[in-house]
Design a protein around this nucleic acid. Structure first.
Lengths: 223, 223
DNA sequence: TCTGAAATGTAAATTATTGGACATTCTATC
DNA sequence: GATAGAATGTCCAATAATTTACATTTCAGA
């Protein structure tokens, strides 16, 4: 299951000036993981920040029965572990490598040293975090207030806006359904309704917005 | 409607050392608002950060028909407007003064100057933001996966943990219901079920956890 | 160009949740 | 210690969404 929240949020590393990127590379431990290998366990207390260099990690929680409920996928330039540094929390999720993945690991001490020297780092981190928070608030609001059809439209639009692309959204309906908190079947119905209104086009493994502007208008009026 | 998300999150100002608090007081414009007065309109583009000194503000969105859907209430020490500074967004909500309220207003330039000089400010801001994000993620997850009863238990526990207090939660059921995204009637039923399990005690305008440890266990097993 | 696995579409039965209506309980204040 | 207003409890009909089950479509690879 892909939580599409993070797909579009701007990568931390892409917001940093070159010299900061270099500082981080120099201070970090570069660790390589094989597909499926565990990176962090939920509950681990050791604080530190991690940045994906290449590959991707799955963020989620293992159930007692071995099942894995995925919350998000993080790609190159994206970070995890901020909570352990700034919110005083243990690792909140299990992290595994999706495929062969390289990760920069920074201990709390090393990261803090860089952090205090270079305000650009905190700005990038705040920017990435706040963008994600904003998206979460929008989704939350949509989940509380809107009918399934309307929140499908709204969240689709929000995610597209943030991802930069604004007319094609590559994902399976079952992934999107999970992110929206509805069943796949219900989502299918909702999408069909939106398609009948001419707002979306349904493909195989993707959803297109033939007229993003019309979609934006519709959402502004209805949601 | 009180969104309890922010009630428990630690206030930005309370995490700052004294000299930073002083710097902010010196650089800010202190503005006083009467009850009901508008502080910011959703959509305003002018960036800046605001900190509640005394009183409280209502964060929400006005509908076309004049109705106001409240998202949260922010009290002393809490901030709004971060999104305009760090995420490049316009004001995302309408803000009105709940009662006679004093607010420190800092323009983008002034705040940035302080921000770059003093890493404690960014740390406090990150800390407040990440704590809120973590709570949002937990709530989101609970809303997607759990039955009403279970998510009531889980969110109740989460909010109590973050607020520091861990056995009494002062709020009306209608407020809690809104936060959980369910109707007041349904929440009433859910709370009754939890009370029958001995996990909570229902008061008038408050909810008690007679045995927080038992509650934590129960949630760990069920959710 | 087949073919099978993956993804999507659809319908009926079941379940959960809402919303209205009203009863009950609590608490501050007179 | 009355009393009014606020908060909570409960019932039921209406509705929205899920689940189960199966049909159909799509696409990648043999």
């Amino acid at each position: 299951m892909l939580d599409l929240i993070t797909t579009g949020s701007p990568a931390f590393m892409s917001m940093l000036p070159d010299h900061c990127v270099k500082d981080i590379h120099d201070a970090a431990n570069l660790v390589t993981y094989d597909a499926g290998q565990l990176v962090h366990n939920r509950g681990d207390a050791k604080p530190g920040i991690s940045i994906v260099k290449s590959g991707a990690v799955h963020v989620g929680i293992y159930g007692a029965d071995g099942s894995f409920v995925m919350t998000s996928i993080l790609g190159p330039g994206q970070t995890f572990g901020e909570f352990t540094l700034f919110a005083g929390l243990p690792r909140t999720h299990d992290i595994t490598a999706a495929n062969k993945t390289q990760i920069y690991q920074l201990s709390a001490t090393r990261f803090t040293a860089l952090y205090e020297r270079e305000p650009d780092i905190s700005r990038a981190l705040l920017s990435a975090t706040l963008t994600r928070t904003h998206l979460l608030l929008e989704m939350m609001d949509a989940m509380r207030r809107l009918s399934m059809r309307d929140r499908t439209a709204k969240i689709l639009l929000t995610m597209l806006q943030i991802s930069g692309v604004d007319d094609v959204f590559e994902c399976r309906q079952s992934d999107l359904a999970f992110t929206l908190g509805v069943s796949r079947q219900s989502l299918s119905t909702a999408l069909k309704q939106l398609a009948e209104l001419g707002l979306v086009e349904i493909g195989y493994g993707k959803i297109m917005l033939p007229d993003p502007k019309a979609m934006r208008n519709w959402v502004a009026i209805h949601c």
